[in-house]
Amino acid sequence: MKIKILLGVSTVLMLVALYMVFIFAPETESGVVQRIFYFHIPLAWIAFLAFFVVFVASIMYLWKRDIKWDAFASSSAEVGLVFTTLFLLTGSIWAKPEWGVWWTWDSRLTSSLILWLIYIAYFIIRSYISEEGQRARFSSVIGIIGFIDVPIVVITIFLWRTAHPRIEAMDPRVTATLMVSIATFTALYFLLFALRLAMKQDEDKLNRLKAFLRR
């Protein structure tokens, strides 16, 4: 039921967002590639939201010891990782025409890459632990430490170097488009997250049943 509503909302929002990104939003001086940014920024924001959910769910797990919170954390981390990957790729595609290179060690690129590596490690380590409770505990610890590391990474790398465009006074139409786009991706995040979570919980239940039957 919830999933159907989310699916409807994200479909409608996606259509509106596409209209706004390609037709409603005015062309800026950097030309047509600038339109990438309407999807690039929401992806980044959602990735961050997803990892924040991981952080909160990890704390909740260590506190309550309910495996449900581990399902929350790992599902959100997975969606967050997908969004971070897309965000890195679109950023790279934007950088090529704008800066002439696919990659540069700019502040935000570097910090996003580190963020991405932290959550890759999160999943690698999950795959190394077979016992459910231990896996949940360890990944909660990584979920907490990883998220706390993010602001430090960002501050450090800003001190280090930056070439990223700063957001200056924007056309109200640009702002509106960006807002709709963020709303779209937020809905999409919750949709994917809910799907993954439901599946994860079924998986866990099934595994427990299987273990019980094999005994």
Partner: peptide, 25 residues
């Protein structure tokens, strides 16, 4: 402004990524 290809690529990547993820699911 011949950068339409890049715009196309960016959107293609987003859709391809999301679809791959859904496929995996």
């Amino acid at each position: 402004m011949d950068n339409l290809g890049y715009l196309f690529a960016a959107f293609a990547v987003i859709w391809a990524g999301l679809f791959t993820y859904i496929l995996v699911l």
